[in-house]
Structures are given as C-alpha cells and as structure tokens.
C-alpha cells in the first residue's frame, strides 16, 4: 500500500502539508513558484543524498549544526544564483529565498540525512513532487488570478504570456488565494486517491 501511495508525486505538499509558507505567500507567479520549488527541491536532494556519505567523518554532536550550516550555505548560494539569473524575478521573493534553508522539505531531507537513512528513490520522488506542486499552484494562481503566466526566463525582462488584459480574479494572487487554491487542490488530490482506491494521507 505504501509503495502505491508513493507513486503519487505531489504528496509532500498536498498530502503531507510540508513546505507551505512560500507556496501560499510568495508563489503568485509561475516563475516565482518554479524558482522557490527548484531551490527547496535541489537543497533537499543535495542534503539528502550527500549527508549520509559524510556523516561518518563528522562527530555525532556536530552533525546537526554542520548539516544545518550546509543547508543555509546552499540556500545562500541558490539565492545568489537566482538573482544572477533574473534580478527582476527574484526582486519579489526577497524574504523567501533565505527561508529555503528552513523549508520543511529541506529540513525533512536534512534530518533523514543526519540519521543516515537510505532514501534515494523516496527523496527524488518527494523533491520532484514539491517542485511539481509549486509549479502547479503558482501557475493556477497567476493564470486564474491575474490572467497571465510569467515564464522563468533569464534577464531583466521575463517573458510573459498574457491571456486577458484585466486581472480576472486578483484575490487568488494574494496569500488568501494561495490558501484557497491549496485547499481545493488538496481536496482534489484526496478525491483522486479515494477514486483510485489508494490510502488517504
């Protein structure tokens, strides 16, 4: 049953309610969602895959602080890389790029890495799931809320697909809309799980 449930990739967000803070607040455009999702997913993959290999070289008492420092280093590095990729896109993400260091998805991978648990298939699935959920939620918020999609293109002027000139449902781009979209998607996810006879999260 567990293996069948694992096949559903958006599980960390829609099932486990992990890593929600950037998704409900900052991910109001497709580009923002993709950048934040990529940052947390990459950090989780690097920490989850890398820490078990190094844990034996680090004294047990120092494992947690070293791992946390490594996570923060990755978040700082990703923030600088994202800013170099597109200053226009990262301008609105200010608070949430450093917060990648303490994103629940990153911290979960970090804790498993410190304990040395073998987790490669599950780690890839949950990280990919987080990225997909971030892209899906931010795309829905921007498309329905603002009537456009901002693509994560490099340079000072990101490419934007405009569907309608007037924002049709601006509330969805606000944090309140983030909660509403996330709640609706979580309900749809549970409905799909039940319809397929799989375990509810």
């Amino acid at each position: 049953m567990e293996a069948r449930r694992d096949a559903f990739v958006p599980d960390p967000v829609l099932g486990g309610l992990l890593g929600l803070c950037p998704l409900v607040a900052a991910a109001d455009t497709l580009a923002d969602g993709a950048i934040l999702g990529l940052g947390a997913s990459l950090s989780a993959i690097i920490l989850g895959a890398g820490l078990p290999a190094f844990r034996e070289f680090i004294p047990e008492r120092l494992r947690a602080p070293v791992a946390l420092g490594l996570g923060a280093f990755l978040a700082a590095l990703f923030g600088l890389a994202a800013e170099a990729f597109s200053p226009a896109l990262t301008a609105g993400l200010g608070l949430y790029l450093p917060l990648i260091a303490v994103n629940c998805v990153t911290l979960a991978a970090l804790r498993r890495g410190i304990r040395g648990e073998e987790q490669k298939p599950g780690l890839l699935r949950s990280s990919l799931g987080y990225l997909l959920a971030a892209i899906l939620i931010s795309a829905l918020r921007e498309a329905i809320g603002l009537g456009r999609l901002t693509l994560p293109t490099p340079g000072p002027f990101p490419y934007t697909l405009v569907f309608v000139d007037e924002a049709p449902f601006r509330l969805l781009a606000a944090p309140a809309g983030g909660f509403l979209i996330l709640g609706s998607l979580a309900a749809a996810y549970r409905f799909a799980l039940r319809a397929l006879g799989r375990r509810l999260p």
Binding site: L17, P175, A176, G177, F179, L182, G183, S184, A186, R190
Partner: peptide, 12 residues
C-alpha cells in the same frame, strides 16, 4: 487539511 486550508484562506 483541505477544509482547514480553505478556512485559513477565508480568515486571511
């Protein structure tokens, strides 16, 4: 979770 998320949205 879905109901509490929608409630949080309305409260927001």
């Amino acid at each position: 979770a879905p109901a509490i998320l929608v409630s949080a949205g309305l409260m927001a």
